[in-house]
Design a protein around this nucleic acid. Structure first.
Length: 582
RNA sequence: GCGCCCGUAGCUCAGUCGGAUAGAGCGUCGGCCUCCGGAGCCGAAGGUCAGAGGUUCGAAUCCUCUCGGGCGCGCCA
């Protein structure tokens, strides 16, 4: 339990005592009562809204309740001051020692500090990346991949049982196009001039080695043969090769999925038929004709009866097709089978991280999950907005047609895994993100990655100096430090910021917003840098004070704890906490 | 036309389940190097939270409408 939760319990207990004495009604609903840091630190260190929330039901003036509550809270051992403030807050100041003790807690718990059981062991499936196996990952894929990975880390840290998952779209027409693209290269390699690449095929250089492999294994036996003979073979080899490449790209980003699920395998196992039959049995599937699409007119639109899922019964605008007019299942039908599969494997929270261009797909998938699981699982979709790439201030435009795609691997190699991952988490997912390749490698205040890592490195540097000076820095010594020697307001501010970590983690997990970790670390690093600089101006505030081993121990304990929190936060983001910058 | 997302300082963005006088970085201006790493720190200036209405003790936050931007809109994935 973190400090805020502890104080919330204290507030609830105090309210109960007031109720016992008849100063409040007995059965008040306390669920809206919170204990939070006030926006303006001048008000105090924590504030509760209890009186404001309860005033109406209690039929009392908020300030009156606040005053009684303040009196009650003043008596607590943790509380240095409790004051009622208009319109009805109770502001709390805790004894410094309560905050300082958090240092010892951090040193006891290490990287488990901030861990909690918010998820209560519920099984959540986080599906992210899931790029089509028609080429390597490009920068655009990187954002969702990092967001999904960090979110999975965050949820695992806060008590969920997490599966990290990649859906391999190896079943549709795009794979046929991929196979034909490889066949084109195959003919080129064997000197059988195929002419220019037909419209709709992939011009990727990366397909040449795939074709080469088929030449090596199969020779020229597919030359001049009808498509029906070679299409499957070429498709399988191409998907395998592309997935191998994608896994390498993921590896370089430090991303490792637990499960790769093949769309094709689901289809071949008859899973779509199962799901559709189940829906059919419940009257949720029918044959009908959809109205023409809105917006820009579709030239060759003709009304045609199709097999439809009654998505509109679950909040979608219209019903959605399950079969194409050529009889094949739609992507949506396969996706239904896939999401049902996630549920069948025991997940009750399904989180999908998608690009913003899939926004129009969210409603129908939510409807599908609601229908298939009969409300026992819920889908949460995180849409990641576009990444704008900049080079020397100029936007880098990517276009598949022009063939100037920026591969994820190249960017990661250039700026480094840590920088890339951190930068991808410096915006909330539904805001567009600018990524400047120059700034990313710059070591300045401008660059939040550097700023945070620099704080960590500086702490490590202090410890190196301490060791050189023969000052004991082992954990037992630090745990036994006389923390009351930490008296400077900036030291206490740093400690309070550090003690915020459990709240931040829980809030970020609840909101599915891993970017909050990045912002928090930036603030924590700021508090630290500020304190560091004061030590330059005032030697008594330096961390290592030669003639005062006790204060040195206390400050080293504080730094050790801050370092743990920084490292832990970076760990959730998948970023290495470096010990030295160069 | 419809749906989803967004609109906060000159720029890029935070803003906790609705909480008090809306915060940070960049940029601008003014300061701080006998130093545990100045790759840093401190200060100043800078706001009609797009606009209007509503709910509420209280709205940047929730609801409605308007304006502006992004994405998407049968048988692609």
């Amino acid at each position: 339990m973190n400090l805020y939760e502890t104080m919330l319990e204290r507030v609830r207990a105090a309210l109960a005592r007031l109720a016992e004495r008849g100063e409040l009604p007995a059965d008040l609903d306390l669920s809206a009562v919170t204990v939070e840091p006030p926006r303006d630190p001048a008000h105090g260190q924590m504030a509760t809204n209890a009186a404001l929330v309860l005033a109406r039901r209690a039929r009392r003036r908020p300030l009156e309740i606040a005053e009684r509550l303040a009196a009650e809270l003043s008596a607590l051992p943790e509380v240095a001051a409790a004051r009622a403030a208009p319109p009805g807050f109770v502001n709390l100041v805790l004894h410094d020692r309560v905050w300082r003790e958090q240092i010892r807690t951090v040193l006891e718990l290490g990287h488990d500090y901030g861990r909690c059981d918010l998820g209560r062991g519920e099984r959540v499936d986080v599906e992210y990346c899931s790029a089509n196996p028609t080429g390597p990952l490009h920068v655009g894929h990187g954002r969702g991949t990092v967001v999904g990975d960090a979110l999975a880390n965050l949820l695992a840290f806060t008590g969920w049982r997490v599966t990290r998952e990649y859906y391999v779209n190896d079943g549709g027409g795009q794979i046929e196009a991929l196979a034909r693209s490889v066949y084109h290269r195959y003919r080129e390699l064997l000197g059988d001039d195929p002419g220019p690449l037909p419209e709709g095929l992939y011009p990727l250089e990366e397909l040449v080695p795939v074709a080469r492999r088929i030449v090596a294994e199969d020779g020229d036996r597919w030359l001049g043969r009808p498509e029906s003979e070679w299409l499957d073979r070429f498709g399988r080899v191409a998907v395998e090769a592309m997935m191998a490449r994608i896994r390498e790209d993921l590896e370089r980003l430090g991303v490792r999925h637990d499960v790769f699920v093949s769309e094709r395998a689901l289809i071949e196992a008859g899973r779509i038929e199962e799901v559709v039959a189940a829906l059919e049995a419940r009257g949720l599937v029918y044959t009908g004709t959809l109205p023409p699409p809105k917006g820009r007119p579709v030239e060759d639109w003709e009304p045609a009866p199709q097999l439809l899922f009654r998505a509109s019964a679950f909040g979608d605008d219209i019903d959605r097709p399950l079969r194409r007019s050529n009889g094949a299942w739609t992507y949506f039908a396969a996706d239904m089978a896939y999401h049902y599969d996630k549920f069948r494997r025991g997940h009750t929270v399904l989180i999908d991280v998608w690009g913003a261009d899939h926004g129009g797909y969210v409603r129908r998938m939510e409807a599908a999950v609601a229908a298939l699981t009969e409300g026992r699982a819920r889908l949460e979709v995180l849409l990641c907005q576009i990444v704008h790439l900049h080079e020397r201030g100029e936007p880098v435009r990517m276009s598949k047609r022009a063939g100037n795609i920026v591969w994820l691997r190249d960017v990661v190699e250039r700026v480094g895994r840590d920088v890339f991952r951190f930068m991808m988490l410096t915006r909330k997912n539904d805001a567009p993100l600018d990524f400047d390749l120059e700034k990313a490698v710059e070591q300045s205040r401008d660059n939040p990655v550097f700023y945070v890592q620099y704080a960590h490195a500086r702490i490590c540097s202090v410890f190196r100096h301490a060791q050189q000076a023969g000052i004991p820095v082992d954990l037992d010594t630090l745990r036994a430090a006389e923390l009351e020697r930490l008296r400077d307001p900036d030291e206490l501010a740093l400690v309070r910021r550090m003690a915020d970590w459990p709240r931040v983690v829980a809030g970020a997990a609840r909101a599915r917003e891993p970017h909050r970790i990045a912002f928090y670390l930036h603030e924590l690093a700021g508090s630290f840098h500020s304190l560091w600089t004061r030590g330059k101006e005032d030697a008594t505030l330096r961390f290592l004070v030669a003639d005062d081993p006790a204060v040195t121990r206390a400050r080293l304990a504080m730094l050790a704890a801050v370092r743990v929190v920084i490292a832990c936060g970076l760990g959730i983001m998948g970023v290495e906490p470096v010990e030295e910058l160069h």
